[in-house]
Design a protein around this nucleic acid. Structure first.
Length: 495
RNA sequence: GGUUCCGUCGUCUAGUGGUCCAGGACGUCUGGUUCUCAUCCAGAAAAUCGCGGGUUCGACUCCCGCCGGAAUCACCA
């Protein structure tokens, strides 16, 4: 297979959200699969939309997802620089080539005049095409144009409108008529190129042979085709990526509908593995029924031809499910010790004073009910701090409400004395399980009653892991003191 | 408005003329796992394959028309 050299070419206008990160993921997978190259190029030719720090945000996102680039900012490479703003002369040289071959012209028509053209055409109900209004300078000889051009004068492409057809790896065979081809701006008044021109120059220079971008570029492709021809350079493979749709409606997901940045999900406790997996499988599948893929599996199975050609809706619920799957997969495969560092930012404040070893023990019994790492904050508080005793919660429990407070108190008394017989050294899951079981027999209570009582007394949480595990991690001292505290509270309440 | 693209369960999708009265996953519901919540397991409901014609012995799959949705029409990318 030919090596695929491709690129992700964002504009530094803000963060990357889930709606546009696919145009990084898919080309990355294609490049890696073919042992090719994935290049990061920053398209910062529009200085009015430039946002400070956006490039860092973009790089951070790519790195978090594990999409390392082979050439680009901070890494360098044979085609540096990778910021378009630093490549101005290159584009101007290429534009001059077009001037020289008569395929471009200098044009200082004011935007007011252009607006007027547009208005009159609209009034006449004919589609506005700039090539119907070419200025006199379009007829200048190449030598004159070249001599007259100076920075500050825009350069326009002299289009060659005719029916064009091309192949898109996702959409299939496409075609468009001459009516969509026009004299597009190559070099702007500020001397910088437009995207339309710059990306073709850069892609050519960087030997890029596959261009993946959103479907919004589909309608400009005929113009690009004309440019490739006029420049006499090789065309890349075109890959059009359908949009990701917002949760409601049929519009593409955008920041306006509150599309979160990819890294915001990191703060929410989403694993990069899950995010990559989810995003890759949104609008792509390998034809099997597999749902969970590692990055290496994605690289191995990926194919552009299996990218869906209609838009896909972003479904956070499924992402959450997938994240839970990944938490379990990673812990089960790599163990708690290796997984633990990922959880560091997500423990409740009350956990601060506890050592890693204790937190790991908590994690080991709780991880299989996490959907996100941030669930840790709500789910583990009682392991680190004594819960607030709430007698009502206890007495209104559906299994306990048929017992009187006196009965509950005496049950607790029995439990305490029974647990006291376990020494500090033998306080573990197994002993606890046995003790709890004999307690069940001795008291002649249903597990629903006895275990609910103990569980609630010790946690006052809506749920907890299995009782023997919970008590074993809490430890002898804490367990007993919490049970005693509830017993006294019950006594007080009864008076 | 012109041009282009798209159209299978609520959602993501499998499906390239018969093996599909349409399969999987998320979500929902039910049951099981000594208490809870979750996991896990078992099961259920859920798509007249956008609509209408045609081709064919046979169409979700091919052709035509229509409808619906989206994208684009910048000295933005």
């Amino acid at each position: 297979m030919d090596k695929i050299i491709t690129r992700f070419a964002p504009s530094p206008t803000g963060y990357i959200h889930i709606g546009n990160v696919r145009s990084a993921i898919f080309p990355y997978l294609a490049a890696k699969q073919s042992s090719g190259k994935f290049i990061l190029r920053i398209e910062d030719t529009d200085r009015s939309r430039f946002v400070d720090g956006a490039t860092d945000l973009i790089m951070e996102t790519l790195r978090w997802l594990g999409l390392e680039w082979d050439e680009g900012p901070e890494i360098g490479g044979p085609n540096a620089p990778y910021f378009q703003s630093e490549r101005k002369e290159i584009y101007q040289d290429w534009a001059k080539k077009l001037l020289k071959s008569g395929r471009a012209y200098i044009d200082d028509t004011s935007s007011e005049t252009i607006d007027e053209y547009r208005k009159t055409d609209n009034a006449k109900k004919i589609p506005f095409l700039y090539r119907n209004h070419r200025p006199a300078s379009a007829d200048l000889s190449p030598e004159e144009s070249l001599k007259l051009w100076k920075e500050g004068t825009p350069i326009r492409f002299k289009s060659d409108p005719k029916p064009r057809s091309w192949k898109d790896e996702v959409m299939g065979d496409l075609s468009a008529g001459p009516e969509v081809q026009d004299d597009i701006i190559l070099i702007k008044k500020d001397g910088l190129p437009t995207y339309n021109f710059a990306h073709i120059v850069d892609d050519t220079l960087m030997n890029i042979n596959m261009v993946a971008r959103g479907v919004e570029y589909l309608s400009s492709t005929p113009n690009y085709l004309a440019l490739y021809e006029a420049l006499d350079v090789k065309k890349p493979l075109f890959v059009s990526l359908p949009h990701i749709l917002a949760p409601q409606g049929n519009k593409k997901l955008s920041k306006r509908d509150g599309a979160k940045s990819v890294t915001e999900y990191r703060a929410d406790g989403i694993l990069p593995e899950a995010m990559l997996n989810y995003l890759a499988c949104l609008g792509w599948n390998d034809g099997t029924e597999q749902e969970i893929y590692t990055k290496d599996e994605l690289i191995e199975r990926f194919s552009v031809s299996r990218i869906q050609n209609s838009g896909a809706r972003f479904d956070e619920t499924k992402l959450l499910w997938m994240n839970g799957q990944w938490i379990r997969k990673l812990v089960d495969e790599e163990g708690i010790d290796k997984f633990f560092p990922r959880t560091l930012d997500f423990w409740p404040d009350s956990a601060k004073s506890y050592d890693d070893d204790y937190k790991k023990r908590v994690l080991a019994i709780i991880y299989d009910r996490l959907k996100t790492l941030s669930d840790l904050r709500e789910m583990t508080d009682y392991f680190f701090t004594d819960p607030k005793i709430n007698v009502d919660l206890l007495t209104s429990n559906r299994f306990l409400k048929k017992l009187s407070e006196a009965e509950l108190e005496s049950l607790l008394e029995t439990t305490i004395s029974s647990l006291e017989t376990i020494s500090e050294d033998s306080w573990n899951e197994e002993t606890l399980k046995n003790t709890l079981n004999s307690l069940l027999e001795a008291t002649n209570k249903k597990p629903a009653e006895l275990f609910s009582l103990i569980r609630i007394s010790v946690s006052f949480a809506p749920f907890s892991p299995a009782l023997d595990l919970t008590l074993s991690v809490l430890g002898r001292t804490t367990t007993l003191s919490r049970l005693r505290a509830v017993k006294s509270a019950l006594l007080l309440d009864g008076e």
